[in-house]
Design a protein around this nucleic acid. Structure first.
Lengths: 349, 349
DNA sequence: TTGTAAGCGTTATCAG
DNA sequence: CTGATAACGCTTACAA
């Protein structure tokens, strides 16, 4: 590994001059010297030593991506195609600007902070951390941070989040179901969306559902807002029970995520129910599996790559401006009609 | 960020002493001093500055994970649950030993090398790079490296690879199909496994297939070894054509990966074919989607988490010993029988 | 336009 | 057992 000093010696100039050439400060170097030095640099295969950058506090060029997880799913979280896709998109975007991604998964906030400090990271992406953990990060570390999929309340302030139009998406699919003649529509999620304290984007999706129903003059039946277990085995049981109960009198089910919807779709069909003729199903996310299942899932699409890209763009903005005004980017979603919903001839008609 | 020097001042000792306490060199510090210093350290929330470690060449504690990809699938690669799962497993394993993961995706070998040198990484995991790229890395950089899923020939030497019993797996499923009475069995993959130069693990799976057939006295029919396009649209067309041709006279199909098998399974059923009664299908990998599709896929299972764990363990070994003897770990696979294969009453019987 | 030198925080060496 | 010091490579302020 050749150093600036060594190259300076070869070129017969001072380290400062080499550094100036390296950084393109053409005003500070004569054209002649520049050329001479340039040649030496090219021959030398120079690679700057990040340790020296770090130590001198000239910017680590590291962006930490911190993935939080509930302990019950630490092994499977990374299998989620959503996580992989957004990581890929972010890496691509940050490496464009010469930043490096350090990936860290640890449920312990203090250890995450420790890591961020040790490496003097220039920015942090918080993936799937809840609001309270975010505030913990925020209060202990003055580094630009952008959250992805953290649910903030209106009263929250001073955060940067890159989310989705979850509310609008929830509204959209519910309206679609209503259009198709459905009146008995359940909302299913692994979060308890009826609780005021619940801290997950599912809440926004639920609120969209609620609004669409209300506009049709339908009151939300709490029995039809169901919290499913995060534990797979238990959840499968719940879904079976629900099916056996005649789906609680519902003709269609809105699942807060595609992965949930697909799981249910398979179970119901295994039990002998026909989708969509016996029961209609919609999801949210449009993960790749949504068109690999049968019937193909009607859902709400998000552009994951765009999200990763924006997350980094917003972070970079914060890094440059050092300003920390609240940003709540909510990227558009798109309704995708496939085959999992049946037309319902309603008594009203 | 408090430094060793500052803590030394507070404790009224020298930086060296603080460092000795920090590193648990109890022999070098009197019990009394140790206690005093320990207290100061605990109060100070000390975080070691990695920049200084890097600069002083005391070990960066960084392990680079370099993901290579074919340009035609750079956007989707990270969506692969396999990639996500193995990343998660590796991160978990390395953080146990206090290492940090730097994630890098770049099809350009030189830029990857550049990154590894700039950060003075202690080890490298190469995920999905082909043999020639590996040798390029190897020749230019003297850092322990472990490849995952790189296909080496018997004549290759001096590498460390953490692979699977691909051959045995291929043999297993083919034998199973034969047991079930199938004689016309196709092998489908996105690699050209018949070419001597082909450089992908699919080749091993194919060879297992071949051996099983040969043992039954069946000669491999080259028409039944099919290379599918890596481009989705084109591949769908190929699969449809294949189905319309009556599956080339085959009664069962062995796909080199589950993702391929599931794709085909859906297309065939959409076209009106019944799986498995019209056509039997097996895959390889046991990704999570394999039991989400219908019929559930019969396949060969690999333990992805175990693989990630071993990859890091092997890498650490190399890092410690600085030895570079060839290691070709081939982790066991397990046959998983599900519902995608039908019993075939053979004329022979 | 070019060069000199200080400083970043850690560790290892060596002297006390 | 304890402490002083040099070294790592880069950047930048300042001197020539």
């Amino acid at each position: 590994m050749i150093t600036i000093k060594e190259m300076a010696e070869i070129a017969g100039v001072s380290p400062t001059t080499v550094a100036n050439v390296l950084h393109g400060r053409t005003k500070k170097v004569s054209e002649e010297t520049r050329k001479k030095v340039q040649k030496v640099i090219e021959k030398s295969n120079y690679v700057s030593n990040m340790g020296a950058r770090l130590l001198g506090n000239y910017g680590s060029r590291i962006i930490a991506v911190i993935i939080s997880y509930n302990n019950d799913r630490q092994e499977t979280l990374m299998q989620d195609p959503f996580v992989g896709a957004i990581l890929g998109a972010m890496e691509k975007e940050m490496s464009k600007s010469g930043y490096f991604m350090m990936l860290y998964m640890n449920p312990n906030v203090m250890e995450c902070l420790h890591m961020a400090m040790a490496w003097n990271v220039e920015g942090i992406i918080l993936l799937g951390v809840d609001r309270s953990a975010y505030y913990e990060f925020r209060s202990r570390l003055e580094v630009p941070m952008v959250t992805i999929d953290t649910y903030f309340k209106d009263s929250d302030t001073s955060y940067a989040n890159v989310g989705l139009q979850d509310f609008e998406g929830g509204y959209m699919v519910t309206e679609y179901l209503l259009d198709k003649g459905h009146r008995e529509i359940a909302f299913l999620s692994v979060s308890d969306v009826l609780l005021k304290t619940t801290d997950a984007i599912d809440v926004s999706r639920y609120q969209g559902y609620k609004k669409a129903l209300m506009e049709k003059g339908i009151k939300v039946d709490k029995e039809r807002v169901r919290k499913l277990s995060k534990e797979e085995k238990e959840r499968l049981g719940q879904l079976e029970d629900f099916a056996r109960s005649g789906f609680g009198g519902c003709t269609s089910l809105f699942f807060a995520s595609d992965s949930l919807a697909i799981e249910a779709l398979n179970i119901f069909q295994d039990m002998g129910y026909k989708v969509p003729s016996d029961i209609s199903i919609v999801g949210f996310d449009n993960i790749s599996a949504s068109c690999q299942c049968r019937p193909k899932l009607t859902t709400v699409q998000q552009d994951i790559f765009q999200r990763g890209e924006y997350a980094i763009k917003v972070l970079m903005e914060q890094m440059e401006k050092k300003s920390q005004k609240a940003i709540n980017l909510r990227l558009p979603v798109e309704f995708i009609e496939r085959d999992s919903v049946a037309e319902k001839v309603n008594k009203e008609l």
